[in-house]
């Protein structure tokens, strides 16, 4: 988490009852949000939760069905042009022209923002330095790696430094190293006074970057708070015990349920146990199943996932249709 020296109480983004229907489908329902200047707000939720729709409404790409949203005081519908000059969007899929080079893409962006050739070139040189694009500046975008595309994409959003930068799933599909690079870029931006609004499917990412997290599912905000507040409510690490088969799972449940609080996911032949004391708890669980070794396929200590977070904060799995949603709370 990064603290921003320029953090103020000024509200940069405000939404009230923001709602979007696509035909009968409710993508976003009654969504309220306040983002203060200099903060990093993460919208955390599974695929299809409505994150991108919210982002698109803020970026004036789609109009709300009901409710309102303002960016720096400008209404996203009535004053869309003004919103576009203070907000910069980096979409989920790198929005670059595949058949132009990295440099040509950036130049086009700078020219479109109104700069003539000379100043545009100087701006692009600055961005190429800052985002470490030099070594592939003359390669066509279609032939660079995913992490490199992301860097160009971010640079393209910063031709003019916006008041607010919106990042839609900035690291989805990136390898861990590229993810680290994107994260450090994001932290650097915040240090320069940009307000950040990002969406993510990764609890870890929201935790690492944001100072305020909003959980969203089925288009509704289901919980919100600082990472520490939310983590206190989610609980700590968990020990997962995976059985070799369904019968084994029943036997494991029998022997564990006396001493532990279990969450059971039958489809994955798994019981999951909170582990506030990390390794000590892992040892306790291992000891409890030591006589049943032949029934255990795997025991692992792991960090809470998005599923766990939703389960703990909202009492249900994020997407009840998903296979992994077969999680029932078995408290004995």
């Amino acid at each position: 988490m990064t603290t921003n020296p320029l953090h103020t109480d000024e509200l940069v983004v405000v939404t009230q009852g923001l709602t979007k229907h696509f035909g009968d489908f409710v993508a976003v329902a009654d969504f309220d949000l306040e983002v203060t200047a200099g903060s990093i707000v993460a919208l955390l939720g599974p695929n299809g939760a409505g994150k991108t729709t919210i982002v698109r409404m803020l970026a004036t790409l789609t109009e709300p069905t009901q409710g309102k949203a303002t960016v720096c005081g400008y209404d996203v519908v009535r004053n869309a042009d003004a919103v576009r000059s203070v907000l910069s969007l980096t979409g989920q899929f790198a929005a670059l022209e595949d058949n132009l080079t990295a440099q040509e893409n950036l130049l086009l962006m700078a020219r479109l923002r109104g700069y003539s050739r000379g100043p545009a070139r100087r701006i692009v040189e600055g961005l190429i330095d800052r985002f470490d694009i030099g070594e592939f500046r003359d390669k066509l975008i279609k032939s660079v790696s995913g992490g490199q595309r992301r860097r160009v994409d971010l640079a393209a959003s910063l031709v003019v430094q916006p008041r607010i930068l919106v990042l839609d799933e900035p690291t989805t599909g990136l390898d861990p190293r590229s993810r680290q690079v994107v994260w450090s870029t994001i932290r650097d931006l915040v240090a320069r006074g940009v307000t950040l609004f990002l969406t993510t499917q990764y609890l870890e990412e929201a935790d690492a970057l944001a100072d305020h997290i909003v959980l969203i599912d089925h288009g509704r905000a289901t919980a919100a708070g600082t990472p520490n507040e939310l983590k206190a409510r989610i609980g700590d690490q968990r020990v997962d015990v995976i059985a070799v088969d369904a019968t084994g799972l029943d036997k494991l449940i029998d022997s564990l349920s006396a001493n532990f609080e279990l969450a059971i996911a039958r489809e994955r032949r798994m019981v999951s146990i909170p582990a506030p004391n990390d390794l000590a708890d892992l040892n306790l669980v291992t000891a409890a199943v030591s006589g049943l070794g032949s029934l255990v396929d795997e025991i692992a200590l792991r960090r809470p996932t998005l599923d766990d977070a939703f389960l703990a904060l909202t009492g249900q799995s994020p997407d009840t249709v998903r296979a992994s949603s077969d999680v029932e709370e078995a408290q004995v």
């Binding site: 720096c72 000059s85 923002r113 100043p119 003019v160």
Partner: peptide, 21 residues
């Protein structure tokens, strides 16, 4: 409405944003 927005656009790598024609 666009002139209002301009006051918010800051520091573009040292280049001032040209006035909108």
């Amino acid at each position: 409405m666009s002139t209002l927005a301009l006051s918010h656009v800051t520091r573009a790598a040292g280049e001032t944003l040209p006035a909108r024609p």
